[in-house]
Write a protein that binds this DNA or RNA. Structure first.
Lengths: 182, 182
DNA sequence: AGCTTGCCTGACCGATCGGCCAGTTTTCAA
DNA sequence: TTGAAAACTGGCCGATCGGTCAGGCAAGCT
């Protein structure tokens, strides 16, 4: 059993994929394990065979985005403040656009996000990114950066009809206007 | 029975007040009728005696904010485009700050807000406001206005620690930067 | 063939949900 | 004081939730 069994990985992937779609469409709380199982073409017990519980499914859904954010934070840490800000503007938009589904999911669990240890690192990295985005110690700019992030995340929700490029362009303009980095 | 019975109105108000606090703190879905009843010092059956169901409680919670937004939309309709935009900027911020609790609640039910007829008018009025806020037919400015609203609403969430004036000032700066109406 | 191992499932559990109803307590006008 | 209307409640209902468990089933090793 050293090599991964194909069937195991295939089922796991299907569950995560369908869970992502359902979380995005109806929200985390409004999606039941039965919904996920039905969409994935297996039984609810199978979902719980592969994942220790509903929060574990959520963690698997968020994992790719969390990894990307963590990598971005790490990369920005080695740059000058100005360069880190520029990188944050460009990359944060990219991540939000590409992972817009995850953004949807995150907004749904915001009221109780503090009680979910499986997303703690992602939240912490997001806050770190907002620091880089501000590019200054000025509290006003820090707040404006958070304001911009809220707008950015909000814009990436329910934005299925927009193309990635259109969304990216819009967010870039908005972010640079708020941060006065045109 | 022509005049309102004092007891009726008093209990109703207490239920709505406690429901507001709970919806804001835990979210609409995570708050049960029993939670509301306990907080209001009555039984769950009493809540359902005064309101036809959980959605009706939500409608009552949102009602003051919905009325304010409707009034603002009506007022803006009689102004020139430029005046309407200026009014929208000022008043929308005021409303979001004053009713920030409602903003919290709304965000929680966003994934399923289309299926809630009791908040349809509020949503429609909000979209109308975003039009006034854009102040132009340019699709880019329209999108930026929506971006600004998302940022504004996001900023008003979980912002209990900030004073109203601080929040107002921050939102004013951010809005005018995005809309380039400094 | 027998047997282990990994994958999967139906049936079931306790808890909680929104909502309903019969009946009790309170209120208040006559 | 009295009686009907209004206000309120305990208890119950069906549905659904996340989660558990014993067992079925196919694949591969011996």
């Amino acid at each position: 059993m050293a090599a991964t069994t194909p069937a195991r990985e295939r089922t796991r992937r299907e569950i995560v994929h369908q869970a992502m779609d359902l979380f995005q469409a109806r929200g985390y709380n409004a999606t039941s394990l039965q919904d996920i199982a039905t969409a994935a073409g297996c039984s609810k017990a199978t979902v719980l065979y592969h994942f220790s519980g509903k929060p574990a499914v959520l963690a698997a859904v968020l994992e790719p985005a969390a990894a990307d954010v963590a990598a971005l934070v790490k990369a920005a840490a080695e740059l000058s403040r100005a360069d880190a800000q520029e990188l944050a503007i460009k990359s944060f938009i990219d991540l939000a656009v590409v992972h817009r589904g995850v953004v949807d999911v995150l907004q749904d669990i915001l009221p109780v996000i503090e009680q979910m240890p499986e997303v703690g690192q992602l939240v912490a990295d997001g806050l770190q990114l907002s620091d880089y985005l501000a590019g200054s110690d000025d509290p006003l700019e820090q707040d404006l950066a958070k304001f911009a992030i809220n707008g950015l995340l909000g814009e990436c929700r329910h934005a299925q009809e927009r193309t990635d490029d259109d969304l990216r362009r819009l967010c870039d303009i908005a972010l640079r206007r708020i941060l006065r980095r045109a």
